[in-house]
Each structure stands twice: as structure tokens, then as C-alpha cells.
């Protein structure tokens, strides 16, 4: 659960059709964003429902940097008002979300950034963004050798030589 800080109503207007939310990143940057934009995030939606139940509005503290948060907001802004199948809880099974050209350009970032975005999207419960990031990561490693995969994602080989060369033996840890 994020830390919740009470917010002065003058800081975050709560009236009108386009209400604002205050998001606070891990580097303590305050970002005001329209609630409507962030409605794609199930996590944010649940928080907002909580505000309505208590009649109090709060800032939402998030455990990732403002740089990452801004990327997520950019994604949500782009798809504001759009229905994306993957964000539907009863929608397509994993691994079947479509390729979207805009997403491919949006996620044309370095490996570290991509991994940070997918974690942020996972935290915020934005399934469509998680799916697009997962596809981008899969594209990075598909067709690569084991060694190349380790290098690309910075994973350390912890197999014994016997384990490593017996791919069909199910490792139970």
C-alpha cells in the first residue's frame, strides 16, 4: 500500500467534471494529473474510490521516479478515452494483445527504462501497458542464445554445469 498524505483542497481541486489527482513520485516530485487520464490504472481507480468513501482527497505516493511516472502518464494520456481490450478484466488471455505502432515507438527506450516502466505499470495495474512492455522485452530476447539473453537482461547464471545442460529436467529449486 502506498503512503497516503492528506492534501489541502486548494492544492488539488476536487470539484467539476475533470478532477485532479496529486501523484508523488519516489524522488518527491509532485505531479498533478487529471483523474480521467489515470482511470486506466486499476490501482489509481481503487484509490479514488477510497477517497470518495471517506470524502477526503489525498496525494498518492508512488514507489517509482518522476521520470518513469511521466512516461506512464504519457501513455495514459495517449489512450485517454480509448477502450483497450487488455484493460478489460474479462478480456483476451495473456500473450495475445495486439501490436500497436504507437506503443512500439513509445517503448523504444533502453533496457533499464523498459524494465522500470513495466514494473510501474504492474504496480499501477495497467494491463495494456504491461502487455506492451512484455511484448517489447520478449522481442528483445526472442531468437537469442541463452548467453545473449543473460547479457540483455543482466541475469546471472546460477546453474551447476549439469543443470545447465539438461534443459528438459524440471528444476524444482
Amino acid at each position: 500500500m502506498p503512503t497516503i498524505v492528506s492534501v489541502d483542497d486548494s492544492t488539488v481541486p476536487g470539484e467539476g467534471s475533470s478532477r485532479l489527482l496529486l501523484l508523488v513520485s519516489s524522488d518527491n516530485k509532485h505531479i498533478v494529473v487529471e483523474e480521467d487520464i489515470m482511470s486506466r490504472s486499476r490501482f489509481i481507480s481503487k484509490q479514488v474510490e477510497g477517497f470518495e468513501a471517506t470524502s477526503q482527497r489525498h496525494a498518492i505516493l508512488l514507489p517509482f521516479s518522476s521520470f518513469v511516472l511521466n512516461k506512464v502518464i504519457e501513455y495514459c494520456s495517449h489512450y485517454r478515452g480509448y477502450y483497450l481490450l487488455e484493460d478489460d478484466p474479462d478480456a483476451a488471455p495473456p500473450g495475445r494483445s495486439p501490436v500497436r505502432e504507437w506503443d512500439q515507438e513509445f517503448l523504444d527506450v533502453d533496457r533499464n527504462m523498459l524494465l522500470r516502466i513495466i514494473k510501474a505499470a504492474h504496480y499501477l495495474e495497467i494491463k495494456s501497458l504491461v502487455g506492451s512492455c512484455a511484448r517489447a522485452i520478449a522481442d528483445m530476447i526472442r531468437g537469442k542464445t541463452t548467453e545473449e539473453m543473460r547479457e540483455i537482461l543482466g541475469v546471472e547464471n546460477d546453474f551447476t554445469p549439469e543443470e545447465e545442460h539438461s534443459p528438459s529436467s524440471k528444476c524444482t529449486g
Binding site: T145, T146, M149, R150, V155, F159, E163, H165, P167
Partner: peptide, 8 residues
Amino acid sequence: LAVTQVCR
């Protein structure tokens, strides 16, 4: 096959 050989 490659994926199963990356790490445990």
C-alpha cells in the same frame, strides 16, 4: 530451450 537455460 534458451529460456530454460538462463537461470534457475
